[in-house]
Design a protein around this nucleic acid. Structure first.
Lengths: 209, 209
DNA sequence: TGAATTTTGTACTGCATCGAATAATAATCA
DNA sequence: TGATTATTATTCGATGCAGTACAAAATTCA
């Protein structure tokens, strides 16, 4: 159990009793719990157990359940989604970049060795977005960002001559994202990682020719 | 309010007090409620309100909450999913058939005018499949059926010469289903029906050339 | 008309959950 | 060392929920 954040030993400690948790790791663990069982399926006691924080500390640090969920989703965004998007950088061959992106996604979707968790954003889109404008906004922003990443990638490839001039980057991006969504959905319903990687390879081959 | 099922007036009534509900319509309404808010997000009182049945009647007719969910999912399968799959029949042009399928799906996903509900099977794949083997089985069977329908459609089109001989029906079906999943996901996170129809059109055009 | 049978409607029990109030603890500051 | 401050730990109260027991109602059968 990690005690405190020694991020900067020079900064003077604040006045009172020191925190027994690190807010970032706590949020990551809360995200993992919500990710696995959804909003309604995860109790504050579950969050408490996952983070090691007791309930009043959760309240004090992050607010009520809804606020914790929003912060956890943002944490997922910062730690997982952002890492995946890094796979777009580098500028190798189009097919290689695409597979790097899909492999990064698969690593996240299958990170938990007990149970495939899929994509927290996709799951949130299904469960929480319809009834919650704030969360819907966050999800939409995430989807837009991914759409834009794929579109930029295909546009570059077209301009480089890797794709023929008639290729439509927008449509290709939609198909690439659709496969990503499909992978996220199928991962949670029992498809194996290898089967979904094959799906990614098929998509990559189909879109690049 | 509909009383009883007059499906066959010749059949003698059973012995006791007649039922005040029709089991099929009750299940459809229960499905609608679960479809909207998920398993954990829907209480038995919600189901009770949606069906007009009180809780002991629900218990007696369908069993406990989990059993109701399974039966509701099967009801969705019988009434919605099966109707959508009819769009595969008919044997017109490939692009027309594909758009008929997508339009049938969109009609279901946007059937509720208050709120886009997406696909009950996709939503169940996300929320309930991971933790419930029985439901996971049902979902997998649904996905397999749709994969097979698309694959058969593309195979026929290739054999008819509508697609070039090198086209791979399996891969095309995966992409077509991926777009379906994507539409279901995006529908619940606020995308408009017209935007998603455009997505379907783009997919159709891309896969048929 | 009255007994038998099935369903409906009300009420209850036990349990989980959320949120907050209160007391104990561990640090800094004077 | 004692006051101050922030966090932790325990506990409580109110609410919601799932499942069930029991009495009332509506129908068929004799």
């Amino acid at each position: 159990m990690q005690i405190g954040t020694k991020k900067d030993p020079a900064t003077k400690r604040p006045r009172g009793r020191p925190r027994a948790y690190d807010p970032d790791t706590a949020l990551r663990r809360a995200a993992q719990a919500f990710w696995k069982s959804g909003y309604a399926g995860t109790s504050l006691d579950d969050i408490s157990a996952a983070t090691g924080m007791n309930r009043p500390s959760l309240s004090a640090a992050f607010g009520d359940k809804h606020a914790i969920y929003v912060k956890a989703l943002s944490s997922y965004w910062d730690f997982k989604f952002a890492a995946m998007r890094k796979a777009f950088e580098g500028g190798g061959k189009l097919t290689d970049t695409l597979m790097k992106v899909y492999d990064a996604a698969l690593s996240i979707y299958f990170a938990d060795d007990q149970q495939a968790l899929g994509c927290f954003v996709v799951s949130t889109a299904i469960t929480e977005a319809p009834g919650d404008a704030q969360i819907r906004e966050i999800v939409a922003k995430g989807f837009d960002a991914l759409d834009a990443d794929f579109e930029a990638l295909f546009r570059r490839a077209r301009d480089n001559g890797e794709l023929n001039a008639g290729a439509d980057p927008t449509v290709l991006a939609q198909l690439a994202v659709a496969t990503m969504h499909s992978i996220a959905v199928r991962a949670r319903s029992g498809s194996s990682r290898s089967a979904l990687r094959k799906l990614a390879q098929n998509t990559t081959a189909a879109l690049c020719k």
